[in-house]
């Protein structure tokens, strides 16, 4: 289990970044904070694309 976590560390980070962005968009009331959370979500998705193709 632990070596699975270390071998797929980039996917773990991607899920964590996406969830931080999603929580920010749902929970925070300030619109600028919501926009920052949306940008965090977007960079998480781009990180998923790029770390997939990395050799």
């Amino acid at each position: 289990m632990k070596e699975l976590l270390i071998a797929n560390y980039n996917y773990v980070v991607v899920v964590l970044i996406m969830m931080i962005g999603l929580w920010g968009m749902l929970a925070l009331k300030n619109i600028i904070k919501k926009c920052i959370a949306m940008a965090i979500f977007q960079t998480g998705i781009i990180l998923f694309y790029i770390s997939n193709i990395f050799i």
Binding site: N8, Y11, V12, S51, I55
Partner: peptide
């Protein structure tokens, strides 16, 4: 949602 996603990433190819 995070727990559901963590259950999925075990099936992904490893990094690299």
């Amino acid at each position: 949602v995070a727990l559901a996603l963590f259950a999925v990433i075990a099936d992904f190819p490893y990094w690299g």
